[in-house]
Amino acid sequence: MDETITYTRKKTRRPSLSADLPREDVVHDIADTDKVCDDCGHNLHQMGEEVSEKLEFIPATTT
């Protein structure tokens, strides 16, 4: 006898960072000469994008 069990897990998600915090955009790109197909010479297109937020923690110092 075969038994199939299905379930879904809830993924925990961190809350978004406050909108009033300063942001810095870092874009990692390749050179324009590498954006051309070696076989046909046509321009390559962007296949995807990853976006993430990282909070920089600077500990307090005494002066």
Rank of each mutant, 00 (worst) to 15 (best):
P59C: 15
E56G: 09
E50W: 04
D38E: 14
H28G: 08
R9F: 00
I30P: 09
D34H: 00
D38C: 09
Y7C: 03
H45K: 11
K10F: 01
V36K: 01
E24W: 02
D34G: 03
S18T: 07
M1Q: 05
H42P: 04
T8E: 14
Y7M: 05
K35Q: 05
L44Q: 05
I30F: 11
E49C: 04
E3S: 10
G41R: 01
L21F: 14
T33I: 05
T63I: 14
D32C: 07
K35N: 06
I5A: 09
S18A: 11
P22V: 14
T33D: 02
R14K: 09
H42I: 03
D2A: 13
I58T: 13
T12N: 00
R13K: 14
D20M: 12
V26T: 08
I5Q: 10
K35F: 03
K11L: 05
M1C: 05
V27F: 15
K11A: 07
D25T: 15
L17S: 08
T6V: 02
E50L: 07
V26F: 09
M1R: 02
P15Y: 05
E56R: 11
D32I: 04
D25F: 15
T12C: 00
E24D: 14
R23L: 15
R14H: 08
G41F: 02
D29M: 13
T61W: 06
S18R: 09
R9K: 02
T8H: 07
M47L: 10
T8A: 09
E50D: 08
A60V: 11
D29E: 12
T33N: 03
R13N: 09
H45L: 08
A19Y: 10
L55M: 15
P15A: 12
P59Q: 14
Y7P: 00
M47V: 01
D38W: 04
T6G: 04
T63Y: 12
D20R: 12
I58P: 00
E50P: 04
I30R: 10
I58H: 09
D25L: 15
D29I: 08
L17W: 03
M47W: 04
A19S: 13
D20A: 13
M47I: 07
L21Q: 14
T4E: 02
G48C: 08
D20T: 13
N43T: 03
D25P: 10
